Amino acid sequence: MTHDTQRGLVSIGELAELTGVPVRTIRFYCDNEVLDFARSSGGHRMFDGAHAADRLLLVRRLRALGMGLTMIRAVLTGERSLAEAVAAERAAVDIELDALSWRRASLRAIEDANPAQRAARLELLTAVQDGAAAHDTLVAFWRRVLGPVPAEMFEGFLEMNVPDRLRDPTPEQVLGYAELVRLVTDQQFRIVVAQQLWRSDRYTLCDRAGLIAGAGEACGMAETLIDSGVEPTAGAALDRYVAAHAAARNIRDTPEFRIKLSHGRYDADPRAQRYWQRTAEIMGTTTTAGAGQRWLFQALDRTVRRSTSDRMPLA
């Protein structure tokens, strides 16, 4: 080993002896541009002893935290601060833990199933990779259904109507989420939801964002009535709902419009009811936008039937 005392450089062997890091590891860090070195006249790697030792110590500590070489290089070059790198690594660990929690709950759901359920649960759960992918699937579904709306409105809709990514989920929550994913990947189900949301296609919608806002307000009013045990009936909630649909089509709220608006062959579709039931269970709530919509559908249908009956001539 040659020690260049004039330039204060040490050989790779001396650096290994100084730091306790194996020569092979030091050579690996050099090849991956983590550790700076110079070449001697004989072509050997030479290092600034104190600087290289400090850098090796930092690299080993960051590696002990599981940090990859790409992030370590960014810290060493100043592209990322140590705080930023640690925060990014912690976020990556959170993602890994979420994935493991989902996998554990999925395995438990299959393990706890009786023999008759096990095959069906296995098929359902293995079609969903993890919680993050499941959530992304639901978001993509509603983005297709709602179409182009303001970002703030879309985020608000998701917050109220789409279960968030599950943290340490139970087996039942994983089963429920997987069932939602299966529903939204059914093309026919998207038609059902779109029909329920936009109602009849006989009218041209001029203001989808306005309809979402108005219908959402009406659903909120309906949810309050549901909590109070009020049966679907005429009133302010239904009027707000109909007014939103009329305004979105630039037409007036008339008895004829209400009759046409009540036409909907998907209102009682069991898939939609199952979707909102599962959503409510996962989100831990008793009412959802789906429950509000169903209450409004029923209120509209009852009032239209009553109005039609009242106008029928006596025999």
Rank of each mutant, 00 (worst) to 15 (best):
S200P: 14
A133N: 10
Q6A: 13
V59P: 08
D54A: 10
G216I: 00
V174S: 01
P255I: 03
A64S: 15
Q129M: 03
Q196F: 02
I72G: 06
E14P: 05
T204Q: 13
S101I: 03
G290H: 03
I110K: 04
M46H: 06
A246Y: 15
A218N: 09
A52Y: 12
R190T: 08
T70S: 14
A194H: 06
W295R: 02
E159Q: 13
L97G: 10
V139T: 03
L138W: 09
A234I: 04
S200Y: 02
T287N: 08
R27K: 12
A134H: 05
E123R: 04
A83V: 14
I72E: 06
I191W: 05
A88I: 13
A140V: 01
L124E: 06
A213G: 01
Y275D: 01
F47V: 07
G220R: 00
T254L: 03
R63A: 08
R249P: 05
W142F: 13
R144Y: 01
L124P: 03
I226M: 10
A87W: 09
F154Q: 09
T19K: 03
L124W: 03
V174R: 07
A247H: 15
S228W: 07
D112N: 09
A268E: 06
S101P: 03
P115C: 04
D239N: 12
G235I: 09
A87V: 11
I212R: 00
T287L: 01
F141N: 03
N114A: 00
P232D: 02
N250K: 15
M46Q: 13
T288G: 11
I72R: 13
D310K: 02
T285K: 02
T170A: 11
P150R: 10
L58S: 07
L76A: 08
D4C: 07
F28M: 08
Q173Y: 07
F37E: 00
L65C: 15
T279C: 09
A213D: 07
A222D: 01
T254Y: 06
D130M: 00
